[in-house]
């Protein structure tokens, strides 16, 4: 009998970490399949998480595929399913199916500098590749991260970012001034212009809200990045995850299957419907 793609595998939440509190709360969940371990996936791929009785939500996998014993998801409390996930405790069971999507073409980037540009919860899909690049450090040139959030409280992975600073330049920003904030004040696209990553031999990978992505790309172009040097991950509402339910398309592409990772060279040829 062929496998039923809609049937999730049961997984146990093994650890929950509160990243951000308040109205835009973010928590990071580590999970393992009830039958042990996890499934194989690539950086940038997603998985459909189930809270039975509430429904499913497509979430990017934020852990590196090189870490074998768990899968990690960093989730913004946003709607019915994600709110239910936030109310869960370690030991609770969820459903997972996937992995879905194309993932980053990381092997094509060997020898290149990688600059990661994230906003808000958009750091989660980037985190998988940041971790992987560190674990395969010798294969890449310079690594750097430009990351911003609305306020300092909205910054995710605070401890990890502190630690990351010893391994690569990390440029943080918040949207409006706060006392004690010593780094950049302003939107992420503006910080990109301020930090001026050099395009030579560099791949820029960006993820964040749609409006941020649009301006980051514009500013990278102003810094003379070629379309082929800019990568992003797109998100649209999804239900099936396998290119059948018909809702996440941008043009003839289904984001769940043909995306979510796009070079700007490819994305710009598609209708800008995301």
């Amino acid at each position: 009998m062929e496998p039923n793609v809609y049937l999730p595998r049961l997984a146990k939440i093994i650890q929950i970490k509160e990243e951000v509190g308040g109205a835009r709360a973010v928590k990071t969940f580590r999970t393992e399949l009830v039958n042990g371990g996890r499934f194989d996936y690539r950086c940038g791929q997603c998985a459909m998480l189930s809270v039975f009785g509430k429904g499913e939500a497509m979430i990017s996998i934020s852990s590196s595929p090189l870490v074998k014993d768990f899968m990690q998801f960093s989730i913004l409390r946003s709607g019915r399913v994600t709110a239910a996930l936030h109310d869960m405790e370690a030991g609770d069971l969820i459903g997972i199916r996937g992995p879905y999507g194309n993932g980053f073409p990381i092997d094509d980037w060997k020898g290149k500098n990688l600059v990661f540009i994230g906003g808000g919860i958009g750091l989660a899909p980037l985190w998988s590749i940041v971790q992987t690049a560190l674990l395969r450090r010798k294969e890449f040139g310079g690594l750097s991260l430009i990351y911003g959030a609305r306020t300092s409280a909205d910054i995710v992975f605070k401890d990890e970012l502190r630690e990351l600073k010893s391994q690569m330049p990390v440029h943080l920003s918040i949207d409006v001034a706060e006392p004690d904030w010593k780094e950049f004040i302003g939107f992420v696209p503006t910080n990109v212009l301020d930090k001026k990553p050099a395009p030579a031999g560099t791949i820029a990978i960006t993820c964040g809200p749609p409006i941020m992505i649009k301006f980051v790309i514009k500013n990278l172009k102003d810094l003379h990045f070629e379309d082929e040097q800019i990568y992003t991950t797109v998100e649209n509402k999804m239900k099936c995850g396998i290119g059948k339910c018909g809702r996440c398309n941008i043009g003839f592409h289904y984001v769940c299957k043909d995306g979510p990772v796009y070079s700007w060279a490819e994305l710009r040829t598609l209708p800008q419907e995301y």
Binding site: E56, K237, C245, G246, R247
Partner: peptide, 30 residues
């Protein structure tokens, strides 16, 4: 199509996951 969990009972929880027709003409589709 759409996929939703429909609850039959809450204590203890019992329900079904149902696929239903959906349409690109409804605003909640996307």
């Amino acid at each position: 199509f759409d996929i939703n969990d429909e609850i039959i009972d809450t204590t203890p929880l019992r329900g079904k996951r149902v696929r239903t027709w959906d349409t690109c003409q409804f605003p909640d589709f996307t």
